[in-house]
Amino acid sequence: MLDFDWQFFLEVLIGGLLSGVMYSLVALGFVLVYKTSGVLNFAQGAMLLFAALTFVSLVEKGIPFALALAITFGVMVAIGIAIERVVLRPLTNRPPMTLFMATLGLSYILEGAAQLIWGTQVHGLDLGIDDIPFEVGGVLISQFDLFAASVAAVLVLLLSIFFRYTRIGLAFRAVADDQFAALAVGLRLPWIWATVWAVAGLVALVAGLLWGARLGVQFSLSLVVLKALPVLVLGGFDSIPGAIVGGLLIGATEKLAEVYIGEYFGGGIESWFAYVVALAFLLIRPSGIFGQKLVERV
């Protein structure tokens, strides 16, 4: 035990936690939609791809950064509203599985549309944040990952304030608690859902830019949803703090597992180890750490 390299352990742990924040960013988009409409939006990854590809293509066409950001945000809001109108509204009161399948189909449509409109070429995305590490006590920390963690923290803070203190945020919570009661007091459900999807589009844009800067803007961006699923299982599908804590736990666990026990399984275990953790947790606490426990009257 005396030979144990604590500094290296700390480095892996910090790297894992910072990676986990990136997973949380994707998970946040899922939580928003699930919290208010009970739909597990499998198209979140495709939305992320669409947002990043739209933004980077506009920038490459010479449109200034800020304007491209604004246009992309507008496009994502329009897509959110269109999804509510064209896909979700006709499926109101359908079983959750039907809605899930609809978002699965939607993800393919968005991926196809993104490639049809903007092409299949791989793009680099420079947000102006250096990815050169700095050293603290012999431990290397990525500037970019710290920046991404800060963005995630700000996003969570803004969303928490939004949900807690604004009228529309309170309306979201009311809809999440009981849709029929919300309707009875005069809340306009379709409008609320359209707004939620638009906010999910904004989260997809932020996550898309950060992941795009990390991986390059390319089709594989849509696969980052696979990183968000164990985070959701762990943190709870309807909890914003849960998405953050779940992301941190999954990020740290999978990295430590890869480094310390990976070699006993032939390496490359982190992709499935996250699911092992999530599955084990599911057996103990099905609604996740912060997820709302379902109590049904029978």
Binding site: E11, G16, S220, K227, E258, V259, G262, G268, E270, W272
Partner: peptide, 17 residues
């Protein structure tokens, strides 16, 4: 020889190793 799981969008652990 170190494996990176498909598709390879996370390599923090491998590069620390």
């Amino acid at each position: 020889q170190i494996e990176v799981p498909h598709p390879g969008n996370e390599q923090q652990a491998q590069w620390l190793t």
